[in-house]
Write a protein that binds this DNA or RNA. Structure first.
Lengths: 144, 144
DNA sequence: CTATTAAATGAGAATAATTCTCATTATTTA
DNA sequence: TAAATAATGAGAATTATTCTCATTTAATAG
């Protein structure tokens, strides 16, 4: 059962306002990472630019969304409603499309031990990781 | 034996100018990823800002440097003189330090097969990948 | 349900990073 | 060494994002 945008806001004790609802609805509908630019386009006339950025920062603070930057240098936003959803990103370098992917459990385990050995050699404490895969989506792979 | 900055430029058929030499020397000396900001600071008075950006773009075009963005949103530059130097990045979220790391051969092989299976499921062609490791360096890990 | 208080919004100004313009200077070529 | 070509420096322009502040909206107490 999907949480409503109102619930998301009230669960996190921040006030329920129209812009916040509109932005959340858009992200809930889109269901995958979206660029700030596309968000702006889709919400034009509904949410002021300054408000959009402020709302995004508010939602980041309560960990309802996360932000990342593509290899092509585009700022992307995605919902992160479920704390447990560890995933990675696959980027199409032609059209800029980004999709979420999960690695097999076995592979994530191998990655963990590789990370442990890197910690030993580097003297870093490693707290997080992300694998970026870069290529061409099914649409774009043929246009060459 | 290290290639000189002049050699790098002439090997790539672009003209040998002072700003290009100065930028290359700085990168050769620094020997690890450096932020554009730090580059600017280090070269203040020697290379105009507009020229610095232009030189960086020139060097990118001939694949002598590569650019990437940290999770903290800082643009980093690094030499990529040897086409074969496949590596990944380890980021310190406290001080922003970035170091290059290599994964074990065995692990890169496992990653390759994982990628093959992702290609099958996603219908993407995957041409490149990068693993980002995020944590705290030996200096910063204790300051908590 | 209404008044008060606190918080969020919208418009546009401010900032930061990067690119562009164009007159001047340096480099390459013949 | 001269002519042609390319690169530079200074600052203007652009883009993405943040900030300011007067107005509006939402939360809270009675």
């Amino acid at each position: 059962m999907e949480k409503s945008s109102r619930e998301i806001l009230s669960d996190n004790n921040i006030s329920i306002t129209n812009p916040r609802i509109i932005v959340l609805e858009q992200l809930l509908k889109y269901k995958k990472p979206i660029s700030v630019e596309d968000l702006q386009d889709n919400l034009r006339g509904q949410v002021a630019t300054s408000t959009l950025y402020r709302v995004l920062n508010d939602l980041k603070k309560i960990n309802v969304i996360s932000e990342f930057i593509t290899p092509g240098n585009t700022t992307m936003i995605e919902l992160s409603l479920h704390e447990d959803e560890h995933h990675h990103h696959l980027f199409c370098k032609s059209c800029g499309d980004v999709i979420d992917i999960e690695l097999s459990l076995g592979f994530e385990q191998k990655l963990s031990s590789e990370i442990k050995s890197i910690e030993k050699n580097s003297f870093f404490i490693i707290e997080d990781h992300g694998l970026e895969l870069i290529g061409r989506c099914s649409e774009c792979r043929d246009s060459f």
